[in-house]
Design a binder for these strands. Sequence first.
DNA 1: GGGTCCGCTGAACGTTTGCTGAGAACCCGC
DNA 2: GCGGGTTCTCAGCAAACGTTCAGCGGACCC
Lengths: 234, 234
Amino acid sequence: MVVLDRVEARLLVVDDEPNIRELLSASLRMSGFEVMTAADGGEAVQFAQRIRPDLVVLDVMLPDMDGFAVAGRLREMGSQMPVVFLTARDGVDDKVTGLRLADDYVTKPFSLEEVLARIRAVLRRTRGDLDLPTRLKVADLELDEEAHQVWKAGEPVRLSPTEFKLLHHLMVNTGRVLSKAQILEHVWNYDFGGDAGVVESYVSYLRRKVDTAEPRLIHTLRGVGYVLRPPQGD
Amino acid sequence: MVVLDRVEARLLVVDDEPNIRELLSASLRMSGFEVMTAADGGEAVQFAQRIRPDLVVLDVMLPDMDGFAVAGRLREMGSQMPVVFLTARDGVDDKVTGLRLADDYVTKPFSLEEVLARIRAVLRRTRGDLDLPTRLKVADLELDEEAHQVWKAGEPVRLSPTEFKLLHHLMVNTGRVLSKAQILEHVWNYDFGGDAGVVESYVSYLRRKVDTAEPRLIHTLRGVGYVLRPPQGD
DNA sequence: GGGTCCGCTGAACGTTTGCTGAGAACCCGC
DNA sequence: GCGGGTTCTCAGCAAACGTTCAGCGGACCC
């Protein structure tokens, strides 16, 4: 839940499932984007023409025309709007990358953390927005989003994908308490049915890898959640 | 019981139990919100359409349709009203699925303190109301809601969840006398059966942690209640 | 000044919460 | 299909937490 006081960019989210559309748009808004939504391909093309978004998040499966067709139309319009596709896990991936219509894609079911990362990466590439920080630092902890790398006290650390996403989420929200439910919501896939016990396990893994020495950075607030806090003020 | 001279926002409270509906709406009104109530899902959708509230407080269990269905309808209506769910404690699944449609949730039995905190947090996030202070200060006492942290004379203090809620309630009501019954009502869950002795215990804990030095901030008014008062004018 | 009431605090308790190690299920590359 | 890495579940354990209670001391009233 990163709240910024400026608009990062204007996005168009296209998906026919209202749940996913709302999940995405709400979360993107909270991250500082201006978001419009469309429920099918026709609406999408219309909207894109009118409001000229900086990026389009596009489901491949749409009721009227598929995402590739939509992307094709956008290209024909002469626009160079970057597109991030949402695809089902099975095999469509090759098509997406092969067609070179997408700048990136995310497979369903995704986690918000993932979608946000892809969108930011694409915007950075296409706009040359180099001032968007790609490196997060908290005390002697460093995380590079692009290189997908983490250092503790200058030493590189190996993290599994989930560990990385969790640490990233904690670092983006430095100083803010996150409940296990919130963490689950952002870091895990949206269809994850399990309970918050996983979060405990992963916090434990993370601590072992990046938070063994004093002063500790990852704090447990009993009954509330977790915070990553820089030494001063603790 | 914070009484403000302006309306913070318009809320719609939906619950079929009259007790809870009234408890909530009375307390929210006293906190400066404009409150409407509905007893079932149909009424809720109707009302929401007409009066366009800024936020909906929605019980998951309703006689006609469940809260998720109501939230779904609201979304379909194209509204972006934030929703705060009220759920039973045991429905862990509810929480996860609920969050797809909700911006936050509170488990029953809740304390008014909790519900208020969630509502404010959601409004802050969704409206971009970043200037609403997240930090309370009284003399050399500071409390940050987001970070869930307290400082006394610049030094961080560790508080348990209940201690934190109590101090928060005292600070929000600085200068106002609160009876033990009132405190019980706001800080403890509404189904708490015990007596006011707990409040005494917790005031004692709090004093030990944040009010050891002169001038004292937490004052006892014999036979009446407690006040938190800044030094000047005491 | 004495009796009574009220509030303070330390100790004790049962309960809840989170941490961790072990292991089962899974995926992926070879 | 085998092995390493990864994800998730679970159960036992330890510490923190909420609550009650009793003994004490100070405040209030007559």
